[in-house]
C-alpha cells in the first residue's frame, strides 16, 4: 500500500473541503462538507493497514480444536496464483483490518442522511431568503 500517496490525497481533500466551507455560497459550503466527510472516510480506511500484531481479529475459535494463527488474509495476488479466499500454504500477506470498512460504511450512510437533510434545508432557505449568499442569513442577529 502506497501510504505516502494516500496521506497526500487525504491532506489535499481536507484542504479543498476546508476552503469550500469558508466560501459564501451555501451550496459550496455543503459540497465542502461532503468532501471533508469523504476525506475522513479515507483517513479511517488508511488506519486499517497493520503490520500484523495489533489487529482485532480473533484467531482462536474458543477451544473447539486449535486454530493456528497463520498470519494470512484474503488478498488476491493473481501474479502469484493467489485467488481469495483460497491461499496456498506458506503465503504471508499484510493484514487488512475488516472493522474499519464497517466503520466507513456507517460513516458514509450517516453523511448521506445529513447531506440530504441539509440540501433540503438549503433549498427552503433559498425559497425564504431568495439568495444562497450565506452572509444574508442574519435575521437572527441582535
Amino acid at each position: 500500500m502506497n501510504n505516502t500517496l494516500l496521506s497526500l490525497t487525504i491532506a489535499i481533500l481536507f484542504g479543498i473541503g476546508t476552503f469550500l466551507i469558508l466560501r459564501r455560497d451555501i451550496v459550496r459550503v455543503i459540497i465542502g462538507l461532503g468532501v471533508l466527510s469523504h476525506a475522513v472516510n479515507l483517513l479511517i480506511v488508511s488506519t486499517g493497514v497493520f503490520d500484523g500484531t495489533t489487529v482485532p481479529i480473533i484467531t482462536d475459535d474458543g477451544g473447539h480444536g486449535a486454530a493456528e494463527a497463520t498470519g494470512t488474509v484474503f488478498t488476491d495476488t493473481l501474479s502469484q496464483g493467489i485467488l481469495a479466499p483460497v491461499l496456498e500454504a506458506g503465503h504471508h500477506v499484510q493484514y487488512v483490518d475488516p472493522l474499519v470498512q464497517a466503520l466507513v460504511l456507517t460513516a458514509i450512510v450517516i453523511s448521506l442522511a445529513t447531506t440530504a437533510f441539509i440540501l433540503i434545508l438549503a433549498y427552503r432557505i433559498y425559497e425564504e431568503y431568495g439568495t444562497t449568499d450565506i452572509r444574508e442569513l442574519r435575521r437572527l442577529w441582535g
Partner: peptide, 15 residues
C-alpha cells in the same frame, strides 16, 4: 425562516 437559519447554523457547526 428564523427556524431554518438557526437550524442551518446548528447543522453546519455540528457536522
Amino acid at each position: 425562516s428564523d427556524k431554518m437559519e438557526a437550524t442551518f447554523k446548528y447543522l453546519i457547526l455540528n457536522m
